[in-house]
Measured scan of single mutants.
Amino acid sequence: KYLVLALYDYQEKSPREVTMKKGDILTLLNSTNKDWWKVEVNGRQGFVPAAYVKYL
């Protein structure tokens, strides 16, 4: 498993997404889509914009 760092705040806009705050450390679950990565944060799984996170 990889960890990624939230570069920006992101507010979920659909039930498939998750909210994150700048500085959050997220567990990367799937990065096959170049635009949306599946992550786990605070016990929830969902998608965030790939451009908003970077590998640690």
Score class of each variant (00 low, 15 high):
P49C: 04
E17D: 06
S31G: 11
L29E: 03
A6M: 02
T19N: 07
Y52N: 05
L28C: 08
A6P: 01
P49V: 03
F47D: 04
S14K: 08
K38L: 15
D35K: 15
Q11C: 10
K1R: 14
V18W: 04
M20V: 10
N30D: 15
L28A: 03
V18I: 15
E12L: 08
Q11M: 13
V39N: 01
E40T: 07
D35R: 13
G23I: 01
I25R: 06
Y55C: 15
L26W: 02
L5A: 07
K22P: 04
K22T: 08
W37I: 09
K38F: 15
Q45R: 13
K13I: 08
L28H: 02
S31K: 12
E40K: 07
Y10S: 01
F47Q: 03
Y10N: 01
V39F: 01
R16S: 14
A51R: 14
L56N: 06
E12G: 15
W36Y: 08
L3V: 09
P49W: 04
P15H: 11
L26T: 01
W36T: 02
D24S: 08
T27C: 11
A51P: 08
A6S: 06
L7W: 05
E17G: 13
K13Y: 05
L7F: 04
Y10P: 01
I25G: 01
L3A: 07
V39I: 08
A51D: 10
K13P: 04
N42M: 09
K1W: 11
N42E: 11
S14F: 06
W37V: 09
A6R: 02
N30T: 08
R16D: 14
V53Y: 01
S31D: 14
P15E: 12
N33E: 10
K22A: 13
L7A: 06
L56E: 07
E17S: 07
V48Y: 00
Q11P: 06
K13E: 09
Y2T: 15
V48N: 00
K1V: 14
L56R: 05
V4Q: 01
K13A: 13
N33R: 10
L5G: 03
D35F: 15
S31P: 08
T19K: 04
G23S: 04
Y52P: 00
T27V: 15
V39C: 05
M20W: 02
K34Y: 08
Y52Q: 06
A50E: 03
L3G: 04
R44Y: 06
A6K: 02
Y52S: 11
N33V: 05
T19V: 03
S14G: 13
N30R: 07
Y52A: 12
K34V: 10
Y55P: 14
T19Y: 04
